[in-house]
Design a protein around this nucleic acid. Sequence first.
DNA 1: GTTTTTCCAATACGATTGCAATGTAAAAAC
DNA 2: GTTTTTACATTGCAATCGTATTGGAAAAAC
Lengths: 220, 220
Amino acid sequence: MSIRLQREKLAAMPKKVDHHARRTRIADALIRVAARHGLEAVSLRHVASEAGVSTGMVQHYFRDKNAMMAFALRAVAERVQDRLERARPDALPPKESVRGFLMQLLPLDTERAEEGKAALAFQAHAAVHPDVAGAVLPDPAPLRAHIADLIRSARAARTGRTGRTGTEADAGHAGGPDPYSAAVVLLALAEGLGTQILTRECTPEDAVAALDAQLDTAFG
Amino acid sequence: MSIRLQREKLAAMPKKVDHHARRTRIADALIRVAARHGLEAVSLRHVASEAGVSTGMVQHYFRDKNAMMAFALRAVAERVQDRLERARPDALPPKESVRGFLMQLLPLDTERAEEGKAALAFQAHAAVHPDVAGAVLPDPAPLRAHIADLIRSARAARTGRTGRTGTEADAGHAGGPDPYSAAVVLLALAEGLGTQILTRECTPEDAVAALDAQLDTAFG
DNA sequence: GTTTTTCCAATACGATTGCAATGTAAAAAC
DNA sequence: GTTTTTACATTGCAATCGTATTGGAAAAAC
């Protein structure tokens, strides 16, 4: 028992370490460096010192720099995904639920601002290195489909029907554009507003106002 | 006369060169490098060889790398601005005029895709280096105001009035959200869709469809 | 016990980086 | 004419880069 206590509390831990945890710790350090100084400042030594480890350890857990970058790229994507899952308020009406989603995508506090800067840097990286990006980035379709479903159900509730609408064409009727386009618009808008906040082209207040205005028009 | 011909045709030109033209040529090379390999690949030597000049010449025209980056950052912003000016179709009805603007912001051909990748890289750079960005990036307000004016005039035409609306609050009436928010939405949406195209999260067709849907709701 | 494997620190190496220093040739100023 | 200034090209240098290599300490396998 005392052995086990030592193994878990002290940092002796000489064998059988949690590889994923180690990699995640290094990736977190990489993300902090990227968020503060850009991807240009991401080097093995800099990341290692930010993580408080040796460069040898970084080399032990990542074959090369590209592997480390790819892992970190996936890590930020998963972070955003996790925050979206955690902020999923299914009990709320559809419009507020969607609003909750989209607000999570805006860099409104310092934590999300850091995350957003890192994500922006990785977007630029992904645009120039499609191979690593395509293998690692998540499919945006499920989120779009979920938002579109919420829009559909809200419109169905407004027109008196309770269930989800069927497969008929939604475009063109009084409810506005088809839900899928409306979902694409909302998500791309949140992303655009987010980067404009980070580049100081837009104040957070204006961004929230614009997003709310768009939510009003999307949900009628 | 023969002297003048030589001075203009041959590349002798030993004195009195156009500094701005030289800097622009170097900045263009930097933009190409950034668009193809990212800002991480931007070095004095790489840019110089892309421009077909020596690194000594680059050093002659830029105090240091930061000055070169700042000049290139402004150059891309001016390029986009120039394309917007050139594509300004004042004779068209407001909605089509705005559509012309926004379509210019989407990376729909290879030329604008390259420009967009460079712009995306510079956005990430600007988010992390606010000092250089703030001193160099253009104010987004005029463009927003122009789009808002076009929306206002379109709505005025629809309600039968001919002139621009006055200073009364536009928000909340049947025309939709206030024109300023609608303009912010349209511009941020175009930017978000643009980066999603570059990162392959979105097809150009979906982006155009989403933008057209938003134009329909913004202009009624 | 011995052996093997895992984990990591330290170091070394060639390439590349930003930048300073130097040299030179031609135009401009006189 | 001479002198000065501009416009580069070339070279050198210290720092940093990614990565390969070496070594050793400790757990696991035997």
